[in-house]
């Protein structure tokens, strides 16, 4: 039997790793990947909680389905925003110097 705390440790490590990526990275693609890694950690914790109970229910699994759908939706939206950012500033790195007319300094 695998203890519940093992799953939680892995889930929290993934959440921490995703948070690290979202905080430190400047590349938009890496920031999106960081958010996805965090979502994966949350999903593992949800399924583990739903299994280690007295009576089996589908609550955890259903929540994970909803989280996966919402994650897919926000990824699509984030990619559209990234393309827009790239079209305006010619880069996908946040915080690069830009000029007022929206073109990046070369």
């Amino acid at each position: 039997m695998i203890p519940l705390s093992w799953y939680l440790i892995v889930a929290f490590m993934l959440i921490g790793l995703g948070a690290y990526g979202m905080i430190t990275k400047r590349n938009l693609i890496r920031i999106i990947i960081g958010a996805e890694i965090m979502a994966n950690g949350v999903n593992i914790a949800l399924v583990a909680f739903s299994v280690y109970t007295e009576v089996f229910t589908f609550t955890g699994q259903s929540l994970v389905i909803i989280v996966i759908a919402v994650t897919a939706a926000h990824t699509a939206l984030a990619m559209a925003l990234m393309l827009m950012y790239n079209a305006r500033y010619s880069t996908v790195d946040l915080g690069e110097p830009v000029v007022s007319e929206g073109r990046r300094h070369e």
Partner: peptide
């Protein structure tokens, strides 16, 4: 970033190990 994510992981590890989670076996 390392400091902040390390703090998140540490707090989470404390929570995972010391909070009285269910000791029940998986159903």
């Amino acid at each position: 970033g390392l400091l902040l994510s390390g703090a998140v992981m540490l707090l989470s590890a404390i929570l995972a190990f010391f909070y009285p989670w269910s000791d029940l076996p998986p159903v």
